[in-house]
Design a protein around this nucleic acid. Structure first.
Lengths: 219, 219
DNA sequence: TAGATTGTTAATCGATTAACAATC
DNA sequence: TAGATTGTTAATCGATTAACAATC
């Protein structure tokens, strides 16, 4: 029942919250009113105690023997994540990845709405994709101001990332979701979150390499 | 100098290794022969002690007062990650994201080569993208066998993920790079690595939400 | 030599897991 | 009531950071 927004909540917990959201949405769809930590743990493949710890962090209490209220819990997590109201965003870099993200409809449920794309290439400018306009990057500041956009999704080539991030900051962007492989340096107060393809691939391929090293033979 | 492949190396370390690779490649390009942990730390924005710990984990020694040998270190990390020889992969799901990944040329340097795509939609089958054929998913087993492909990059809609992952496992796929929002259950021995868009977005948007909650006013 | 850097050993920190009393 | 589940407090585990002797 408590709503206290805790000062600090661990990053691992925050990264797990979307999984709870997915589970809880399923439960709501099935008109399930309450769900217990062992149930959630079973569905996600981890331990009940971890579920309870995570849920405690967002400040919703359960009821012994019954579990947690599905709708209330869902709302609390979405509120915590800021997924309860929509934030507008621009995609900068209308390459394959940028276009793919602009067309992804899963963001709608996560409080993210992509309004438009930006690119430097005149051949792309003016040709809408997924019903969204592609503007010249020159117009980033003007349009960010006019539309009050504070989030940029950065999908330019690695070499251009630092420069374009600078433009974004100048344009008043407050948060950059960085899909490039480049580490960005930004003024204090600007949020950068890296979507790290290479890190994920490293985990996959190192495991594969380890397995290969272990299991010789077996033609 | 030592090459000992340590039994267990922490996941956080593995996820940082690609950053070292990027830095080291730059250094090599600049014909720099040695690089010190403070130098690397400066470039990546973390502490020298962490760099030394990470590098120790892959088993290359530095020289006091001089630093680490750039080329040797680079090779050691790439060998550890399995990025030193190419693994073939299929993209399953020729939607926007799948096509974007198939066209991404950054994988070449990371030991990953996408040979072809698969989709269920007859309209997509037979129309190559980025010079790569799109096959009917029915042919996954046959082609995986014939070409010896062991990695699948899963970019189908969430609802189809579980079923298609099952097909992939049946086809002899050993490692799945999962770009869907669905948690996959696979037989023991099959590697699944999740590329978690939602987790990353959660970190970004929760920080934004926290900032918004803190800094009222300031029109 | 003097001094910067490595690598080891210890201390700190945070996250996960365990144990269990409180609750309905 | 009996028993399942919560939430708290403690224990464990692993990762990061600090301190410092060894090295060239």
């Amino acid at each position: 029942m408590a709503t206290g927004r805790r000062i600090s909540i661990g990053l691992p917990t925050i990264r797990r919250l979307p999984m709870y959201v997915a589970i809880l949405e399923q439960a709501r769809q099935a008109s399930q009113e309450r769900i217990s930590s062992p149930q959630i743990a079973e569905l996600l493949g981890f331990e009940a105690i971890q579920v309870r710890k995570d849920l405690a962090a967002v400040g919703v209490s359960g009821q012994p023997r019954v579990g947690f209220p599905v709708v209330e819990l869902l709302q609390a997590i979405e509120r915590f994540l800021g997924w309860d109201n929509v934030s507008d965003a621009f995609v900068i870099g209308a390459g394959h990845l940028g276009v793919a993200l602009a067309g992804y409809d899963g963001f709608a449920g996560h409080g993210l709405k992509i309004l438009a794309l930006f690119d430097r290439d005149p051949a792309k400018v003016g040709t809408p994709v997924h019903g969204k306009e592609i503007f010249d990057i020159e117009r980033l500041g003007e349009l960010a101001q006019r539309l009050g956009v504070r989030i940029a999704i950065l999908t330019v080539p690695d070499e251009a990332a630092a420069e374009v991030a600078g433009l974004a900051v100048q344009a008043g962007i407050e948060a950059i979701w960085n899909f490039t492989g480049t580490k960005l340096t930004v003024p204090e107060g600007v949020i950068v979150e890296r979507m790290d393809l290479a890190a994920s691939l490293a985990v996959l391929s190192s495991r594969l390499a380890a397995e290969r090293a272990r299991g010789r033979g077996r033609a």
